[in-house]
Amino acid sequence: MNADDKFQQLWRSRKTAPAPDIKALLEKAAKVKGAVKRKLILSYVLLIATIFWACYIVAMSRPKMITTWIGVALAIMAILLYLASSAGLIKQLFAKGQEEVPVQEYLQNMLQIREKQRYLQRGILNAYFILLFSGLALYMIEYTSHLSITTTLMIYGAVTVWGLINWFYFRKKAIAKQEQSLGAVISKLEAVIADTKD
């Protein structure tokens, strides 16, 4: 027997897993769809709950200065922005019929989605921090206005330090973590795309 026939014979003698029952397979299809929907619904419920909570706090404390209102609005915008970007990506990731396109096109699509995700996450993460901290700084003006200058400076100093730690440590860490997983996927995709080119 020549090598070709031998390989083919060996290849075909590999025991295959029994094909799952068709009914179970189709149920799985519905389940996957349902899981994605549930995840999206949960994010939106959490988002709405957070916004309601922020509005409740503001309504209870009845702020008089416009800066407090702007501050709360900025913080809400930060949360909205973060969730809207992730929801948009999830939708794009599960777009129908993508698996049917030629392999090269499919890989290019995956690469585009991941590059967009990298760009979006970085931009959104920066915008999230800036909005959140400027919102907080504005929100605090009203409540520190009747305090002494020293106390006000101390409070703002503490918030600034916290903000700087977030910006230079946690944000950087989040970007590095994302870069590690996303960067690896992107370079792997680029390598396979290059490999399929003649």
Binding site: Q98, E99, E100, V101, P102, V103, Y106, L107, M110, R114, A184, V185, K188, L189, V192
Partner: peptide, 19 residues
């Protein structure tokens, strides 16, 4: 061919999970 193409794309999607 159509089925194999879908299978190949699904295989390559695993690049996103873990290499």
């Amino acid at each position: 061919t159509w089925i194999f193409r879908i299978a190949c794309n699904n295989c390559l999607r695993q690049l996103e999970r873990s290499s």
